[in-house]
Amino acid sequence: MNMSIKRLMAIFNKDYKDLSRNLYVSFTVVVPLFLAAFMGRQGNIALEQQYMVYNLTLCLVTAYIQCALIAEEKEKNTLRNLMLSPASTMEILAGKGLLSFATTLLVLGLSAFFLDYMPKDLIVVTAAMVLSAIFYIGLGTALGLMTKSAMEASVIIMPFVFVFSFGTSLSFFADKYPFLHAADYLPNAQLLLLAKEVELGAGFADVWSNLGIIAIWVVVMTAITVAIYRKRMVD
C-alpha cells in the first residue's frame, strides 16, 4: 500500500509540474476566477449567478484538467510506458484525479472568496461540492479515455460546459416547456437547489435527496467510465 501511495504521489507531482507549465490548460483555471472577481466587484449577486461560476469551475477546471491530462499522455505516447510500469491504472487515474481535485478546491475556494459567499452550513455545501467534484472527475476521465489529443479534449468538453454550467438556467423556461423540468435533476441544478435550501436554514437531514441525486450521478458516471475503460484498454 505504501508503495502504491508513493507511485500515486509520483504521478501527482509529475502532472503538477507539467500542468503548471502548460499555458493552455492553466488558462482555463483563470477563467472562473476572473469571472468571480468581476462579478464580486458588482456586489450582492444572486445565488443562481454565483452557482454558475461554481458549476463552470467544476466543468472547466475539474473535468477539463482530468480529460486533458489523460489525453495528452496518449497524444505524446507516454501512456504506454506508464501502463507498462508497476503503477496500476487505478494509481495513474487516481494520481491525476487528485491533482484535478486539489485544483478544483483551490479555485472554488478563491471564487467563493471573490464572490463573498459564506454558506449558512459550510459542511453541507462542502460535502455537496466534493461529491460533485468526484462526478466531474469521472466525467473528465471518461472523456479523456475517448479522446486522443489535448486539442480534441478541449473541443469535446464544450457541450458539457454548456449543459452543466449554463444549463442550470434551463429550468427557468420549464413553465413554458414542461420537459425542461428534467433539467432539475442534473447535478449542477441539484447543487444549486441544495445551496438554496441551505440558505433557508436546512441541514444534512433536509438535503439528503439532493445529495442522493448527485450520488446517483457519481455512481452512473463511475459505471460509464469503467465500461469505457474496459472497452478502450482491450485494444
Binding site: 508503495m3 504521489m9 509520483a10 509529475k14
Partner: peptide, 26 residues
C-alpha cells in the same frame, strides 16, 4: 522496451523525468 516512438513530457526537465522514473519504478 526502448520503443522507437517513445514519448516524453515536453514541459518537464531532464531531472524531473529521472526522479519521476525513479519513483514510479520504486
Amino acid at each position: 522496451v526502448l520503443f522507437l516512438d517513445d514519448g516524453l513530457y515536453e514541459r518537464l526537465t531532464v531531472k524531473d523525468h529521472l526522479s519521476f522514473y525513479q519513483a514510479i519504478f520504486s
